Amino acid sequence: MRQESSTAYSRAQLARQVIPCIDVHDGVATDPSGIEGLADPLDVVGIATCYAQDGACQLFLDVIDPWTSVGYLPDLLRELSKSGLELLVSVQHGVLPSPAKCRELLSAGADALSVSTSMVEEPDRVADAVRLLGGRRLIGVVNCSGDRQRGWRTLIHGGATRTTADALAVARRFGELPVRALLANNVDREGTGIGYDLELTRAAARVSRLPVIASGGAGSPGQLAEALHGGDATHVLVNKVVHSGRETVGSLSESLYRHLRGEAG
Rank of each mutant, 00 (worst) to 15 (best):
Y72V: 12
Y72I: 09
P74F: 03
P74I: 06
P74G: 02
L76K: 07
L77H: 08
R78Y: 00
R78L: 00
R78E: 08
E79K: 13
E79C: 08
L80F: 10
L80A: 07
S81T: 07
S81A: 13
K82V: 08
S83Y: 00
G84N: 05
G84Q: 07
G84M: 06
G84P: 06
L85V: 10
L85C: 05
E86N: 08
E86W: 02
L87Y: 02
L88K: 04
L88M: 15
L88Q: 13
V89C: 10
V89I: 12
V89M: 05
S90H: 02
S90P: 12
Q92T: 08
Q92C: 15
H93I: 01
V95E: 15
L96C: 08
P97K: 03
S98I: 06
S98F: 00
P99N: 00
P99F: 01
P99E: 01
A100I: 04
A100Y: 00
A100H: 02
K101A: 11
K101E: 14
C102W: 05
C102E: 06
C102H: 07
R103S: 04
E104W: 00
E104H: 00
E104P: 07
L105S: 09
L106H: 03
S107I: 11
A108F: 07
G109W: 07
G109D: 03
G109R: 06
A110S: 08
D111S: 14
D111M: 03
D111K: 10
L113W: 01
S114C: 15
V115S: 14
T117A: 10
S118Q: 05
S118A: 13
M119W: 02
E121D: 11
E121Q: 13
E121K: 12
E122Y: 06
P123H: 01
D124Y: 00
D124M: 11
R125V: 13
V126R: 08
V126Q: 09
A127L: 10
D128T: 14
D128W: 01
D128Q: 15
A129S: 12
A129I: 11
V130I: 10
V130N: 03
R131H: 11
R131Y: 04
L132P: 10
L132Q: 15
L133I: 11
L133Y: 03
L133M: 02
G135T: 09
G135H: 05
G135Y: 04
R136N: 04
R136V: 01
R136A: 08
R137D: 01
R137W: 01
I139Y: 05
I139N: 06
I139M: 15
G140M: 11
G140E: 11
V141I: 15
V141H: 02
V142Y: 01
V142F: 01
V142A: 00
N143V: 11
N143I: 09
N143D: 15
C144W: 04
S145P: 04
S145H: 14
S145G: 11
G146H: 10
G146W: 10
D147T: 13
R148P: 10
R148F: 03
R148E: 15
Q149R: 15
R150L: 08
R150H: 13
R150W: 02
G151D: 07
G151E: 06
W152M: 09
R153N: 13
R153F: 03
T154K: 11
T154F: 09
L155C: 10
L155P: 12
